[in-house]
Amino acid sequence: MQEPGKECTWILERIEPYVDDELHGEELGRFERHIESCESCAKELALAREVAHELRELPWYSCPEHVSEEAAIRIGADADEAGRTWLDRLRARFSGGILSMPRPAVAAALIVIVAAVVLVLSQKDLPFFTGGAPSGEQEVTVEELEKAKNDAILALAYVSKYCRKSGEILQNQDIAGRLNKPLEGTSIAPIRPFPLIRKETP
């Protein structure tokens, strides 16, 4: 007769196959006889059965609807893309006007426009300021140059503020939502709303 320790080891190696009804004949008989007489192995078997049962009760999760909708858009877009020329793509890209342009492009355009306006306004010898042909020699004072510079700095500061705000919006909407917070202390994460849980019938 084998020592209890060795028999328990033999039993523990076969607990999972037993739970799955994969033991037969003499092996099955030997297993069940030992379980009847060994409390420790019987407890282990009970735990194994509970784990198997609870695993099968873990839920399926419903995929949010927007996932398949976005996939459908991608599939549709890929199908359309195959038949388009570069001109079609360019037209489509800017079909929404300035709102469809990338934010950096808009910001850069604004900077150029504002700087151009400021420089133009600082040029007093242009026809719309003088009412006619530019005068011959015209001097720009230090004060006028200083004012033009300050106006340009102010314009750039406004544009910079817009860019920063746009960056914050981008970060909040597109990036922060995707980056996850680090684990804090326990391995259990904070509560989050979750989609409807449903159970599939095999």
Binding site: P59, N180, K181, L183, S187, A189, I191, R192, F194
Partner: peptide, 19 residues
């Protein structure tokens, strides 16, 4: 950055029914 591991356990009510 760390990756936050979500578990559904925190949002499941104190008991739920299996099949």
């Amino acid at each position: 950055d760390g990756v936050e591991i979500e578990t559904v356990a925190d949002v499941v009510t104190s008991s739920s029914r299996g099949a």
